[in-house]
Structures are given as C-alpha cells and as structure tokens.
Design a protein around this nucleic acid. Sequence first.
RNA 1: CUCCCCGUAGCACAAUGGAUAGUGCAUACGCCUCCUAAGCGUAAGAUGUGGGUUCGAUUCCCGCCGGGGAGGCCA
Length: 587
Amino acid sequence: MAQDLKQELAALLQQALNSVAPTAATTAIQLERPRDPSHGDFATNLAMQLAKALKRNPREIAQQLLNELPVSPFVTSAEIAGAGFINFRLAADTKTGVVKTVLSAGPDFGRSTAGGRQKVQVEFVSANPTGPLHVGHGRGAAYGASLSSLLAFAGWDVTREYYVNDAGRQMDILGLSTWLRYLDQHGETLPFPPNAYQGDYVREMARQMTAAHGTQFLRPAADVLAGTPGLPEAGRSDDAAKQQRELHLDALIAQAKALLGGDWHYVHQHALNEQLEDCRSDLKEFGVEFEVWYSEKSLYDTGLVARCVALLEQKGHIYLQNGAKWFRSTAFGDEKDRVVQRENGLYTYFASDIAYHLNKFERGFDKVINIWGADHHGYIPRVTGAIKALDLDAAKLHVALVQFAVLYRNGQKASMSTRSGEFVTLRELRKEVGNDACRFFYALRKSDQHLDFDLDLAKSQSNENPVYYIQYAHARVCSVITQWGGDLADLGDADLALLSHPRELAIANQLGQFHEVVETAARELAPHMIAFYLKDLAAEFHAWYNAERMLVEDAALRDARVALAAAVRQVIRNGMAILGVSCPQTM
RNA sequence: CUCCCCGUAGCACAAUGGAUAGUGCAUACGCCUCCUAAGCGUAAGAUGUGGGUUCGAUUCCCGCCGGGGAGGCCA
C-alpha cells in the first residue's frame, strides 16, 4: 500500500516533469518522508534538482510542476514550501487503510520481495571452539541473526553459516590443555603452561574423560616433559620468554601426540565436540541458529586447500621465497604479500580461508556476507585479493566488520581474553540480563560502532532497557483486546474513517512506513533501523494510549480504535521477530 | 609508522545530502476513583576545529585536534 502510494506519486511527478522540462525528464525523482509532519506525508526536492539545469528559481519550477500535476484521489494537497520542496498530503482514508492491510497480512505484513529470492550466505560468529562464547561473540551472533532474519523478510534466500575452525594449533592447544588437566587429576602433575587454556571448563572436560575411559590416557608426567625446552621464569614478559613459552607448548603438543598415539585423536575430538556442542546450545538459547556448520578440517580432507593453492599457482599468483609459498596479494591492493604454505609444508590459516571462499562461490551464492570482528579488518584486502586472483566476482563479497564490545564493570574495562579465564561469557550475560534485553541491547547499535557494554547498567537497571518499552506497548494492546472481548476477524468491517485524531493518523502513517524501513534496513545491512523504528512506533502508541481511551461506549469508534491497536501489535511482533526478541502478552 | 572505528545535550545513542538535528537516562515540575505508571505531559539542554564540494553538509572530500581499536611464516 505504502509502496504503491510512493510509486503513484512518482508517476504523477514524472508526468508533470515530462511537460515542464522534457530535456531533464530522466532526472531521478526522489520522494522522502519529511521529518516534520507539518511538511506533509511525502516531499520531493525535484524542483531544486532541476534549478541548475534550467537556470531558474526552484520555487518557480515547483509552481510549474504543480500546474502540470495530474489530480489523484490519494492526494489532498500539494504545496510549495521552503526553498522549493513540494509537499504532498495524503487523504486520511488513504493513510488509515493500512490498518486493514496489516490485519489481513498478519505476520507477513512488511514482507518484501526486494531480495528477489537471490541466494545470500551470512557467515557469522565462527568463533574457535576452544572455550565458551563471550560477550564479543554475542554481538556478532545478535547482529548476524538479526541481519539474516531481516534479509529473509526482505525477500532473500538466506543461508546462515558457522565456520568451524577445527583444524590448526588452537585446537591442539585445547586438546593438550584438557589432557594436562586430566593428568593432574590423576596425580601426574606438571607445570600448567600459562599460554594454555585455563578455564574451569577444561577441567570439566578432563573429568568427563575419566568418567568415560578411566585411566586409559594416563602417562607419566616426566615422560611428557621430556625433551621440552622448559618454561622461563613466571614473571618474564620479554620476547625471548614469550617465544620460549610457545616453543614449550608446541613441544608438549608433540609429546602428547607421540605418547598417546591413536588416543590423541580421541582427546582432541572430545574437546572439540564438547566445545562445539556447548557453543551450539548457547547460541540456540540465544535464538541464534545456523543452517550450516562448515568444517575447516573438511577443506583439507577434501583436498580443496591444496587444489586452491595449485589453482593460484596455475594462474601465476604464487611465488617461492625462503622455502615458503607466497600469494602475491600486493598485485590486488594488499600492502604485503602473504604466505599460504610455510616452509614446513603446513598451510596457513589464510590458505584454508581462501579455499573456504572459493567453496562459497562454488556453491552459487549471489551474495556472500562475512561478519567479522574489527580485528580482522586488515584481512579484507588479502581475501578479496585472493577472490580476484581466482577470477571470481569480488563484488559479491561483503564484509561487515563488527566493532568490539568493550565491557565495563565497576566503571572499569573488563578483560575478555579466553586465555586468562577471566572473561564474561555470553551465558553469564544472558542469565543476568535476559535474552530479550541482551538481543535488543546489541541490536540498538550500528554494527560498525564501538559498543560500551556496561555490565552494571545492564544488570542493575535492566528494567530501563528500551526493550521493555516496546514489549510493554505490545502487552498493553493485548490487554485491551482481551477486555474488548471481540473477534479480531470482525474488524475487517471497522469504519476507519473514525480514526481522525492526529495521533491516530500519525500511528497509521508510521505503520505504513514499515515496508520502507524493512527494505532500507536490508539494503544497508542495518537491522538496528528496525529497532529504532519500533521504538518510535511504541512511543506513538503510548502517547495515544494515554491521551485517548480505546474501549469507549460508541461501538463503531471502539472497533476502529481496537483495529488500529491490533495493527500496532502486529507490526511490533513482526519487527521483534526480525530482532529475535519475544513479545509477552502480559508484563 | 600504516590502517580501521568514533567525536552530536551532563551520560548513552539516532538522523536514504534536505526544512525547526530526534530518542532514552539523568535534572525540574505535573498526571493513576479512568483500557497495565516498565507509561504519559511540560521545561531546560548538543553537531570538536579549519577549509572544500553543493541551491543546501551532522552526513561527502582534505587538513588539524581528541578518544578507542588493529596490524605476526599466530589462529
């Protein structure tokens, strides 16, 4: 409806434009919603755009356009204002008509076909399964999930995907950490490396190993330590000490593999499965689910990584230096070339990442969206470079960088390192603040904006979270409808012309804009726009609720008002569904 | 050194290049014999700085100042 009106107006303007300025007939007609309601329902700056080409006063041109503007039943007035705007006012019944559209479309109101059923992949979270998700991951999860829902609602065919980093050193470290805790629990104690995973969940996994397999993995601590360079003194933080700690860790991993033989695979796999399952359930409780969990390891197993590097080599983008294979990413705008295969023959993380992107493109997505933490920004040139090098269409790739969430506790920054073990987990946050407030809090910020997450505020004053403001509007409508006691299906006959109060028209107007908000938000990959829209809608509703009574004596007026309230409720539900926030009936 | 994000009211955040820059918290004063006061009304309060592009700049471009973050043959 609202879209049709916009198109209708544009068509009228085009006719006027054709006769006033045939030479500039291709000027793009822009119609916008004025901020100030006194400027009408739609406004165009067409006359101002033409002013330069026609070398005439904008207001003069606007007047000519008005003279040529065809009459329409939807438009009650069109007038010149300001520097040369043309403001349109729509007929009241045109505006209130949206109420019936909302009620009949229900959950589908606002749904758009703008995406054209194109295939889009949204890859997000993709955290290493080496420990619990923390609040930083939560932001990526909330953004990715909301964005995915939004795109689906806007007509895209969405695949939500989690890239599982199940190959590589970090997973080895996790396996080792678990095993060392296991040994410790059986009395074979050696100094726990400071750069291994410290968290209690590691001890828990070790206990599970004992429960399932007893002492099968027990080895003497002395054997484990044999051949390792040993740890530097605890306090040292110089480069040499750091390097020695890493060497020590790698030596321990090598020892573990040697001493455990085939059992190493079990330890490794156990840790991976446990963490992945924990992650999956955590996200599910948060309302975040994925269609695909894509294994990094599978890229190696299927030979795609090797094939990918070979392909780059074939195309002449690889050279050898110091025994390593380098990808010439500088040829594609990167600041330096990057190693894809180390001297020791191991592929780098970057190599598997290229392979993963190749795979994404081979799966035929029209658009590939990567949601990355801001620390990956330096990564963009080399990945897009690799895509170009593979002769793929880099324009299909879109990287959305999510800025970090910085936690504040007692007015101080809290650390979020998974190594130190003193991070705040997503679980803790959800438990304290609640899933709804949590999702909404994340959604209320543009993704590329730094987020200061004040835990004390979120926890102690969660009732002031704007999510309750919107949910409360919804609950109020529910309450009114219950007391009204009628059947919503009968409201199709309501006489909406009775909705003449300015607040009522403002609400109807707001409802009519939902389509546009959905489409704009989807185009901008900005689900936060939905959140702000809902806040505005709820505000309009609360103001009306306090100013006017809905359940009045006059049955016709009552029905019209209940219909409007029900429409507000429906749009709140549709919007909140995109954001993954629930709408309780009562509060 | 290079790159990224950001400077809007006391605080936290909005604003497809448009008109009188919005919202919440905090502050002051009001509103429940009336559909849920997790609400509403009224008041006060802001675009870091200097240029440029434009009919028109919070928005785009350049410089400066200030804050935050990132840069590995790690993953």
